[in-house]
């Protein structure tokens, strides 16, 4: 296991995962994860289906709490605070660690209200119009929708919807943005736009992105974590196989499985 501290020596870890195990019921679905997520960098999670990369992503903002049979062991800290301590409010966690989902999921509300939603529930006192505009500009969507802010967020194209969801996420000004295969349902042009956006957002946010697209990982990520899967009792168990600078993972990985995966020989 590479020492992430050495990978990015001048970047403090925002999230620190130590010996993290995820169970669904009695089954150990994700085994023994150690990972440090560096501040203001893009970390990509890659690996074959069922390797648990999305599951780990959803641990960071405690979204798995919505699944009744989910249970986790180990230590996961955020700015040295235990995310799973009993006195931690998941709502406060999600307010700081935002998420963009695989399928664009705008609310059936106006574009304006989609952006304003998070700010409203979190008690934003400032100028809402300004916040909406700023968030849409950050998501490179302002020019396209500025004349139809009252229209439904579900009435725009898929690529626009996903950027709306990104704008919605940055509107609450989180610290970390989680992206779960954000381009999986987008066309190549929309995908490029979103990738450019990720580059822009990196200046202000720590980003963790799950992707099936190897080129995408190599284009946007500073750090890449390769997850692999092993079959235990007929079920798929995921584990973190290798983590390193993106160029190392893609050009000179230590593990053979990583080499095979990034060169497209399985997965």
């Amino acid at each position: 296991m590479a020492d992430e501290q050495a990978i990015f020596p001048d970047s403090e870890p925002v999230i620190d995962v130590e010996n993290w195990n995820v169970y669904y019921g009695d089954f150990l679905a994700l085994k023994g994860i150690f990972l440090k997520v560096p501040k203001n960098k893009v970390t990509a999670f890659i690996g074959p289906s069922g390797c648990g990369k999305s599951t780990l992503l959803r641990c960071f903002n405690r979204l798995n709490d919505l699944i009744p049979i989910f249970r986790a062991e180990g230590r996961m800290t955020y700015h040295d605070q235990d995310l799973y301590a009993s006195d931690v409010d998941p709502v406060q966690v999600r307010r700081r660690i935002g998420m963009v989902f695989q399928k664009p999921n705008p609310f059936p509300k106006s574009i304006y209200d989609n952006i304003a939603y998070g700010a409203r529930v979190n008690g934003y006192q400032g100028d809402m119009d300004e916040l909406v505009e700023r968030s849409l500009r950050q998501a490179a969507l302002w020019e396209e929708v500025k004349d139809k802010l009252k229209q439904s967020g579900t009435a725009i194209s898929g690529g626009q919807q996903q950027r709306l969801c990104i704008a919605r996420t940055v509107a609450v000004q989180p610290d970390v943005v989680l992206m779960d295969e954000p381009c999986a349902s987008l066309d190549p042009i929309s995908t490029l736009k979103v990738e450019e956006l990720i580059h822009q957002l990196k200046e202000n946010y720590t980003i963790i992105i799950v992707t099936h697209n190897m080129q995408q990982a190599s284009r946007v990520a500073d750090l890449t974590a390769f997850f692999n899967v092993q079959v235990v009792d007929g079920k798929r168990q995921g584990y973190l196989a290798e983590v390193d600078r993106t160029e190392v993972i893609f050009q000179n990985p230590k593990e053979e499985a990583t080499q095979q995966y990034v060169s497209g020989r399985f997965g």
Binding site: N61, N105, V121
Partner: peptide, 23 residues
């Protein structure tokens, strides 16, 4: 997905119910 989106933005259970799910 709508529930997840709302919860992911830092809304509480009841904010999600009243502002997203019931509408």
């Amino acid at each position: 997905e709508l529930r997840q989106a709302s919860v992911g933005l830092g809304a509480t259970r009841w904010e999600t119910i009243f502002r997203v799910i019931v509408p």
